[in-house]
C-alpha cells in the first residue's frame, strides 16, 4: 500500500461513514455538519486524483457558500420532529418501493458499466501534461467552450434576478425612509416662527 492509497482509504471511509450519519442523525444541524465533512473528504479525494483546482473549488463553493446557507436555514427553522413522524407509516410503502427501484437501477448501472475499448486513454481534448490544472481548465473553457460558459453564466444571472423579483415585495403599511426628501427639506417648509405676546397664548 502506498501513501496515496492509504489516504484514499482514509478519505473514502470517513466520507461514507459521515454520509451515513447525515441521514441517521436526529438533529438536522448535525446532519448538515456531517454533510460538510462529506464534502471535505470528497475534496480530499479530488486532490488525490490530481484535480487540485476542482478540490479547492468544491471547498470554496459548496462548503464555503452553499452549506452555510443550508446551515442558516436549518438553524433558523424550529423543526418539530413529533409532527414530522406522524405521517411516516402512511408514506412508508411508497418510500420503500422508490428506494428499491433506485437501488436496482444503481446496481444495474454499476454492474454493466464499461468504457468502450476504443475510447480508452483518448481524451476529447488533448491536454498537455505539463500544464497546470487551473491553466488547462482555463484554456479549454475560455476557448472551445466559451459560448457555453457564458451561457451558463447568463442563466445563473437570470436565476438570481428571478429569485430577487419573486421575493421582493412592497408592503403597503411599511414606513420607509426617503433620504432625498429628508435632505431636500428646508427650515421654511418645516417650521413656522411665531411671535407670542407676553401674557397671551397663541
Amino acid at each position: 500500500m502506498s501513501l496515496p492509497q492509504f489516504f484514499f482509504y482514509v478519505f473514502s471511509t470517513i466520507a461514507v461513514i459521515s454520509a451515513l450519519m447525515v441521514i441517521s442523525s436526529r438533529n438536522p444541524v448535525h446532519s448538515v455538519l456531517f454533510l460538510i465533512l462529506v464534502f471535505l473528504n470528497a475534496s480530499g479525494l479530488f486532490l488525490l486524483a490530481g484535480a487540485e483546482f476542482l478540490a479547492l473549488l468544491l471547498v470554496v463553493v459548496y462548503v464555503g457558500a452553499v452549506m452555510v446557507l443550508f446551515l442558516f436555514v436549518v438553524m433558523m427553522l424550529d423543526v418539530d420532529f413529533g409532527s414530522m413522524r406522524q405521517g411516516i407509516l402512511q408514506y412508508m410503502p411508497i418510500g420503500v418501493v422508490i428506494g428499491v427501484i433506485f437501488l436496482l437501477e444503481l446496481l444495474l448501472v454499476a454492474g454493466s458499466f464499461v468504457i468502450a475499448p476504443q475510447l480508452g486513454g483518448v481524451a476529447t481534448i488533448p491536454i498537455d501534461m505539463g500544464v497546470q490544472n487551473t491553466r488547462a481548465l482555463g484554456l479549454v473553457i475560455y476557448t472551445r467552450y466559451a459560448f457555453l460558459f457564458e451561457g451558463a453564466g447568463a442563466i445563473l444571472l437570470v436565476a438570481m434576478i428571478g429569485a430577487i423579483v419573486l421575493t421582493l415585495r412592497h408592503k403597503v403599511n411599511v414606513k420607509r425612509q426617503d433620504p432625498a426628501i429628508q435632505t431636500a427639506r428646508r427650515p421654511a417648509d418645516a417650521m413656522k416662527i411665531v411671535k407670542v405676546k407676553s401674557g397671551q397664548g397663541l
Binding site: 487540485e52 483546482f53 479547492l56 473549488l57 471547498v59 470554496v60 462548503v63 464555503g64 497546470q132 490544472n133 487551473t134
Partner: peptide
C-alpha cells in the same frame, strides 16, 4: 501549493 490563493480563499 500551485493553487495557493485558492487554498487561502477556501
Amino acid at each position: 501549493l500551485n493553487v495557493g490563493i485558492l487554498y487561502l480563499l477556501a
